[in-house]
């Protein structure tokens, strides 16, 4: 082996992101005759998700796949899926945005800003949706008056304010307790974390499928590690990722559908939002988008480009 790349992931072994990188490591090793060894470090044993972009920019780690949300600290436009325009959008629309001209420009900016290499297209972890305890949400109007845990991010906070809810920031480890004791009525989350900590034990019994946001992992290689690789190996890496991406996205989707099914088996009832309701709420939310774009320090032109997908 000539080149070793360490991948730092927050998720544990067996998580869809870790499995994607395990498969990627095997394929790359095979295609480079073992010249490139990719080693996966899971469970945030090295860095938590939010720390990964800085660690990549500083060259402390070779590879990572942070959420766009976390890249957003450096390149605000990476948080586009948190903006009102993406409220209620389906997965296909989101992928259309990141696979199109907006995604290309976003990735160029990420590369220029952080001095990293975007290995290829991102894959999703599912929609951030509203999981609630005994307060059943059937329409967006029911959200008003709820105390909701938000994982952070000014966009989510402002969105909930417009909806009339009280956003509260509570760290994830305290969330089960806060939910079971009624400190908050619900939490914004994707399906998998709800399953992995058995949130039904903490009294969560409803989920409103409105699609508040959509979370994605974007594969990044540090500039130092990337420039060490000869061009032919760089090409193998990018080609392998691109070849895998459709399958990776499919597996990721299957995984969170599975998580939602398990959540449902444990008594968490899903409620589909009606298309009209979502559309009306999106219209209402769009009123604050220009202000939000400004506060978040986003480039309005780039956001306009993204908006074409929605």
């Amino acid at each position: 082996q000539d080149f070793k790349l360490k991948v730092s992931l927050e998720s544990p072994d067996g998580h869809v992101r870790n499995e994607a990188f395990d498969r990627f490591a095997d394929l790359v090793s095979e295609r480079t005759d073992g010249r490139v060894a990719i080693e996966v470090f899971g469970s945030a044993s090295q860095y938590s998700g939010a720390e990964v972009p800085a660690a990549l920019a500083q060259g402390s780690i070779d590879m990572g796949a942070p959420l766009y949300l976390h890249v957003g600290r450096f390149v605000p436009e990476a948080q586009f899926a948190d903006l009102p325009m993406a409220y209620g959008a389906d997965e296909a629309q989101i992928y259309a945005a990141v696979d199109g001209p907006f995604g290309a420009e976003l990735h160029t900016r990420i590369e220029d800003t952080l001095g990293v290499r975007v290995l290829g297209r991102p894959f999703g972890v599912g929609h951030a949706i509203l999981y609630t305890t005994d307060k059943k949400v059937e329409t967006t109007a029911d959200i008003a008056g709820l105390k909701l845990r938000v994982p952070g991010g000014a966009a989510s906070v402002e969105r909930f304010r417009v909806m009339g809810a009280n956003p509260v920031s509570i760290p994830w480890p305290d969330a089960p307790q806060a939910l079971s004791r009624g400190t908050v009525d619900g939490t914004l989350s994707t399906d998998e974390p709800i399953r992995s900590v058995a949130m039904w034990d903490s009294g969560v019994s409803h989920v409103f499928l409105d699609g508040q946001s959509y979370f994605m992992y974007v594969p990044l290689v540090s500039g130092a590690a990337w420039s060490r690789l000869p061009e032919e190996l760089q090409i193998v890496l990018t080609d392998t990722w691109e070849e895998m991406i459709a399958d990776t996205r499919k597996r990721a989707n299957a995984r969170w559908m599975e998580a939602r099914r398990i959540n449902q088996e444990n008594g968490i009832e899903p409620v589909e939002a009606s298309a009209d309701d979502l559309l009306a709420m999106r219209e209402k939310l769009l009123a604050i988008q220009p202000d939000l774009v400004k506060t978040l320090g986003m480039d309005p032109d780039l956001i306009d480009l993204a908006q074409e997908a929605f």
Binding site: R73, G152, E158, S169, T295
Partner: peptide, 12 residues
């Protein structure tokens, strides 16, 4: 590094 990127906290 933080100044160069103008990074800010997660809250509003």
């Amino acid at each position: 590094f933080a100044i160069r990127f103008g990074t800010t906290g997660d809250s509003s």
